[in-house]
């Protein structure tokens, strides 16, 4: 698990760095255009792809922080004794969802690679490079959800609406 956490952290750092780079790249390209230089329209294309990579790279890390929003309506009214078990079952369901996604987005990646599919913007981007981030992301997400099935903490707190 330590090893998986390390990978997730590294990917999150990559996402954070990308975010800052995208910011400077957009400012650079828009300034160049305003001043009448061509710059490179690829900057926008890669900023757009950056959003996909950022989402895929930081999602597993965010699972650990419980940063993906969920709704505590049902989990809040469950009896205290049953709530932790139920939360673990739901985390198990999340793992299952992620594993399905790993399999089929992986298959989509291979298919795109075989056909040589491209995403056509300012350049022809091989689609498998984009799709390929998905199985990795969902596999790591599944690994992170497993901590809420087997670890000491649970995903849900059961405290919806208690604070006011």
């Amino acid at each position: 698990m330590r090893f998986v956490d390390r990978i997730c952290n590294i990917l999150a750092v990559f996402a954070g760095v990308s975010l800052v780079l995208v910011m400077f790249a957009i400012v650079l390209q828009a300034s160049l255009r305003t001043m009448g230089f061509s710059g490179s329209s690829h900057i926008f294309t890669f900023s757009e792809y950056g959003l996909l990579y950022i989402a895929m790279a930081a999602s597993p890390w965010l699972v650990r922080l419980r940063g993906h929003v969920f709704i505590e309506m049902f989990t809040a009214v469950l009896p205290r004794s049953f709530a932790p078990l139920f939360s673990r079952i739901i985390s198990g369901l999340c793992i299952l969802i992620c594993l399905f996604l790993v399999w089929y987005t992986g298959e989509a990646t291979l298919k795109a690679y075989r056909f040589g599919d491209t995403d056509m913007r300012s350049l022809d981007m091989p689609k498998w490079l984009l799709l390929g981030a998905m199985p990795i992301c969902f596999a790591l997400m599944a690994a992170q959800f497993s901590r809420f099935v087997f670890g000491p903490d649970t995903l849900h707190s059961g405290e919806a609406g208690v604070h006011e």
Partner: peptide, 13 residues
């Protein structure tokens, strides 16, 4: 969503 699956995964499922 109701049972507490994160919103993004609920949509994906």
């Amino acid at each position: 969503m109701f049972v507490g699956v994160p919103v993004a995964l609920a949509f994906l499922a």
